[in-house]
Design a binder for these strands. Structure first.
Ligand code: FES
Ligand code: FES
Lengths: 134, 134
DNA sequence: ATTTATCCTTCTGGTTTGATAGGAAAAATG
DNA sequence: CATTTTTCCTATCAAACCAGAAGGATAAAT
């Protein structure tokens, strides 16, 4: 039940961008890497899907970098995790019934659905803005 | 953020034992394996730590098998997962501060702690008895 | 032209997962 | 006592996943 470094580093990355939101200059990965002590090369990989999902915009070249595509209170931690970790539900069958052979007669599914809802609520209710001010 | 088969199969195993609770005969793994369509060999591995933790008692030899060591309403799903999956918190640093270098200045820890509490509550409030009657 | 950056693809060592295999020890049965 | 049934114990293994490094192409500013 561990969150991988993708989700954890990605959230830290997004918080840095959130802190920089509204400023003139975009924030380059080199700076984020320095502040968070994560390699640029690894951050590059994480930022690709975040950009593809439309959460981030980029500017290339010198004085380039990244900026949030939306305000910090319009992006939730749940969205970030969903993008970087894939489906975060504890068992696949919650989203994909064909995953479990004994789906029909399963007496544990209700359990995992309860767990799933608790997890989703705990991260989808929180925006970057909330996390920054906390 | 997936629960592994250890936690999922183990919970199903424990639910079978809970359903058998109070009966004269212990339930052998061959029978559980047949009902749940999981190999006996794999179930054997899962049941070792459950027994070591005192949740289960065994009787060897013919007509042997397993019985719950406590009533179904005294065993929670959280206990089972803790035993089979290890620490179920989404990030290790919640339990072990030395895990994260930037522990002191981390701005995401509060987030994961919230998530952790939500997960724990969703499984520790539920007993085998609850899960059976649900 | 040089520098600073994003962008894109690939590779790899290490760990975890999900089992299977083979047999030893104990208890009931005939 | 021999057989069967069952738990008990240890080892092995393929596949998947994780964390990250490497190498270079492209674009913009100076
Ligand atoms: S249906 Fe998927 S765990 Fe039961
Ligand atoms: S201290 Fe562990 S994630 Fe921040």
């Amino acid at each position: 039940m561990k969150l991988s470094t993708r989700g954890r580093y990605g959230t830290r990355l997004m918080l840095q961008l959130a802190a920089n939101y509204g400023k003139d200059e975009p924030l380059p990965l080199t700076e984020i890497a320095r502040r968070e002590e994560i390699s640029v090369k690894y951050l590059e990989q994480l930022i690709i899907p975040l950009k593809a999902a439309g959460l981030i915009e980029s500017r290339r070249g010198a004085h380039g970098g990244y900026v949030l595509a939306k305000a910090p209170d319009e992006i939730t931690i749940g969205q970030i995790l969903q993008i970087l970790e894939g489906n975060i539900s504890p068992v696949p069958c919650v989203k994909d019934p064909s995953f479990c052979i004994k789906y029909e007669t399963c007496n544990t599914r209700k359990l995992w659905e309860t767990m799933d809802k608790a997890i989703i609520q705990s991260v989808c209710d929180v925006t970057l803005k909330d996390a920054l001010s906390a």
